[in-house]
Write a protein that binds this DNA or RNA. Structure first.
Lengths: 151, 151
DNA sequence: GCATCATAGATGACATGTCAACTACCCGTA
DNA sequence: TACGGGTAGTTGACATGTCATCTATGATGC
């Protein structure tokens, strides 16, 4: 079988370490500055991307690429914290909209600047323009592979 | 404040998506082929890296860059499944060694080839040599930033 | 109308991760 | 010897994620 070369192994382990460290650091910062997790943040961003600040649950799941049950649980928790609400869907009684509340909007507006600043500081400021471009290509290619494989 | 450019935002979202998808896919494959999680795999790899197939708990935690409590919980679960054992440490009665069992060794030896194959297929085969090199540089730079910040 | 199957979303059981204590032991100093 | 602070590792409470299953509604063919 084809093993990994020494260099590939190092690259791979480096990636695993970066992934873990970066996620942990971003979570810590978000939590400390805004009492939000990365997951909360992702949901709130998806909502603010909408002109009417609301989405159908499954559409949100597809957009975030989350399992629907994960999303359902997470929305329940966010609802209990007052960041979002549910709204019945008139055209399909099974469905529901997720709606951003005022508190949710305030939370995301307060959280975004320091979070973006951290991402910039830890990632983009550390890289040259060319590295950033290559980084983008890499993620797209890998995503393409996974996509292809899942079919 | 300095926001992210359109391109940077795309790159960042792409990275988040890749991270999530790749992790999920690797976990699925490992689970299906070997009944192991990525975490189990990481622990077992760290053990097989040792000539005597055993490590002190905290040293393992440092190597994996895991919180000690996470490791402790995880080791408990792996022990219950028979993948590892504990061994008292004669020179420091507080401490303990984590030891690879025969079953653990068999599990990792069976799991490694298909797992490596998947990593190769999804990542390295998708990239040019130059992209791989850049990828390695990127992870190192970002890790360096995080490292610097945490002090 | 109604039997049948698909879909939206929630739920419960369980695996995993985090944080803050806690226990037991080490070691330097008086 | 005894005390005090540091270290190794575990534990419990709780947040989060996964999987399988359930409920209610929608859509389709007869």
């Amino acid at each position: 079988m084809r093993w990994l070369t020494e260099t590939e192994q190092q690259t791979w382990r480096g990636f695993l370490a970066m992934q873990a460290q970066l996620g942990a650091q971003l979570n810590r910062q978000l939590q400390a500055d805004s009492q939000l997790s990365e997951s909360d943040f992702a949901v709130l961003v998806a909502l603010t991307d909408r002109p009417d600040a609301r989405v159908r649950v499954l559409e949100l799941a597809r957009e975030l690429e989350w399992e629907k049950s994960r999303l359902s649980h997470h929305l329940g928790r966010m609802r209990r914290r007052g960041l979002i609400t549910r709204q019945e869907c008139p055209s399909d009684a099974r469905g529901a909209f997720v709606v951003l509340t005022r508190a949710g909007r305030e939370a995301i507006e307060a959280a975004a600047p320091p979070h973006v600043e951290t991402v910039r500081r830890l990632v983009f400021d550390a890289l040259t323009a060319e590295q950033i471009a290559t980084f983008g290509e890499i993620t797209q290619r890998v995503l393409g592979r996974i996509e292809a494989e899942r079919r």
